[in-house]
């Protein structure tokens, strides 16, 4: 079962997305701010991270940069979640090292496709 770390400060979005992912068979870990997200990413060895960009404490861009700069966590794919639909935000997220980008409101089918695409492939694929 794939482990997904969801870093999101908005309680409703966190609850909703977490439950919907669990319903589809993912194991979901939750963090409500940047520092907790970083700690869980390092200790919980998730297979993939969903990272909100506007987080309190350490924002999503900075958290992604730190994770991608650390050899221990650099390989974990990160999907950036942001409410900004501007192209510059997408570029900013990719520049911070995020592997993908999803605009809020999250379109679940699209997000699931991206998750499946980024989850580490089984050997031989």
């Amino acid at each position: 079962m794939a482990k997904i770390l969801l870093v999101e400060d908005n309680e409703m979005n966190r609850d909703m997305l977490g439950r919907r992912l669990e319903k589809r068979g993912y194991q979901v870990a939750i963090a409500a701010d940047g520092p907790t997200g970083l700690a869980l990413a390092r200790s919980g060895s998730p297979d993939l991270i969903l990272m909100d960009m506007s987080l309190p404490g350490i924002d999503g861009w900075e958290a992604s940069r730190q994770l991608k700069a650390d050899p221990a966590t650099a390989a974990i794919p990160i999907i950036a979640l942001t409410a900004h639909a501007m192209a510059e935000d997408r570029e900013k997220a990719l520049a911070a090292g995020c592997n993908e980008y999803e605009t809020k409101p999250v379109e679940l089918t699209s997000l699931l496709a991206k998750i499946e695409l980024l989850l580490p492939k089984k050997p031989g694929a």
């Binding site: 908005n10 409703m12 979005n13 909703m16 919907r20 506007s54 409410a83 900004h84 409101p105 679940l108």
Partner: peptide, 20 residues
């Protein structure tokens, strides 16, 4: 730009919970 962010966040919750 700020408004679009502020408006999208609750929309995110409304659409998501309705779908759920």
């Amino acid at each position: 730009a700020k408004m679009s962010h502020e408006l999208r966040t609750p929309m995110n919750a409304i659409i998501g919970y309705a779908e759920m």
